[in-house]
């Protein structure tokens, strides 16, 4: 049985250049692009109006943006290597600067190196980031930001494989990373140790996501296959195949029943985890999708948003009835 989704709205030319990353709060969508500003579109209004622009925040463009599940803390990483933090005092209010993470130096002496992918914990207290040499750093945004809470090495110093993606489990217990060489790692944030080195995908892993209950981990990338792992035992439990291009983005639905994936050929797919099958494929563009995100369920129908090389934000909602 397949599901039906309809394009409900498209914000054309939401940015002047490729949209590289989006993040959804309960009421808004934050988008980042090759230009210097972050845009915030309201998702509670059916016209999805632009409600705030954070101008000139990433001079060289922004490649990753993340937001905490409660929608209070956001972080953005720019091509210049800068990592900025944002906060919202109450839902719907304006986002304000909440400092930066100094990645060039740290109290412990060693800099974090180029910050690449980022992820935030449920309440935004913890931020995980990858580096080009394969390290994964975790900071406490509410504590001493000059010191890394955790620093995970995936190889001997400086020789790790580029960390293309990272995620924090909702319970805050695990950090997962996907790498250029296809490796997938899970780290235990309590012990500060590596939990699993999972059988990877050989090809670059560009996106990784924990299920809401933190029992599953999905990873995908240039292999065009989504690998699903069991986080309790560190086992590879299945593959979701059907994409014909590099997979750039993954997101679990709030219930953990469905997985959303976006690919380089502009196709977005919805997968049923129970059935291990694709239940919907859509494509509004044949240009690369860089990001696909579910919107937190605030209305009856599930909604998601895609963005990428066509510079637009496309919103979909599930069609009711058959």
């Amino acid at each position: 049985m397949s599901k039906q989704y309809l394009t409900t709205h498209t914000v054309d030319q939401a940015h002047l250049t490729d949209i590289f990353s989006i993040a959804a709060t309960p009421t808004a969508l934050i988008s980042a692009s090759g230009s210097s500003s972050l845009h915030i579109h309201s998702t509670t209004d059916s016209a999805f109006p632009l409600v705030q622009t954070l101008s000139n925040v990433h001079k060289l463009g922004c490649h990753h943006v993340a937001v905490s599940r409660d929608g209070k803390i956001a972080a953005s990483a720019g091509f210049g290597g800068e990592l900025k933090v944002w906060k919202q005092s109450e839902p719907g209010s304006n986002w304000e600067p909440f400092g930066e993470i100094d990645t060039k130096s740290s109290a412990s002496g060693k800099g974090a190196g180029e910050v690449w992918a980022i992820a935030l914990s449920e309440n935004g207290q913890f931020l995980a980031s990858t580096t080009y040499d394969g390290r994964i750093n975790v900071w406490d945004l509410f504590g001493d930001r000059t010191t890394k809470l955790r620093e995970y090495e995936t190889a001997s110093a400086g020789s790790g494989s580029f960390g293309l993606c990272v995620d924090l489990s909702r319970d805050g217990k695990f950090t997962a990373s996907g790498h250029q060489n296809g490796a997938v790692y899970v780290f235990n944030n309590d012990t500060g140790r590596i939990q699993y080195s999972l059988p990877g995908l050989v090809k670059p892993v560009r996106t990784i996501a924990f299920s809401p209950a933190s029992t599953r981990l999905a990873a995908a990338g240039d292999a065009a296959t989504i690998a699903v792992y069991d986080t309790k035992h560190g086992e590879h439990v299945g593959n979701l195949t059907g994409h014909a291009a590099w997979i750039t983005s993954l997101d679990w639905s709030n219930t953990g029943e469905y997985l959303l994936s976006g690919a380089f050929d502009g196709k977005v797919k919805v997968w049923s985890i129970d059935r291990g099958a694709c239940v919907a494929t859509h494509s509004e563009t044949d240009q690369a999708l860089w990001a696909a995100r579910w919107l937190p369920k605030t209305v009856k129908n599930e909604m998601f948003c895609t963005a990428g090389a066509n510079r637009s934000l496309t919103f979909y909602r599930e069609a009711t009835g058959a």
Binding site: T17, D18, F20, G34, G61, H63, F79, F162, L164, Q180, P204, W290
Partner: peptide, 11 residues
Amino acid sequence: VHELQLMLILN
């Protein structure tokens, strides 16, 4: 600029 950004993102 765009091509350089793609190069860096896709590595």
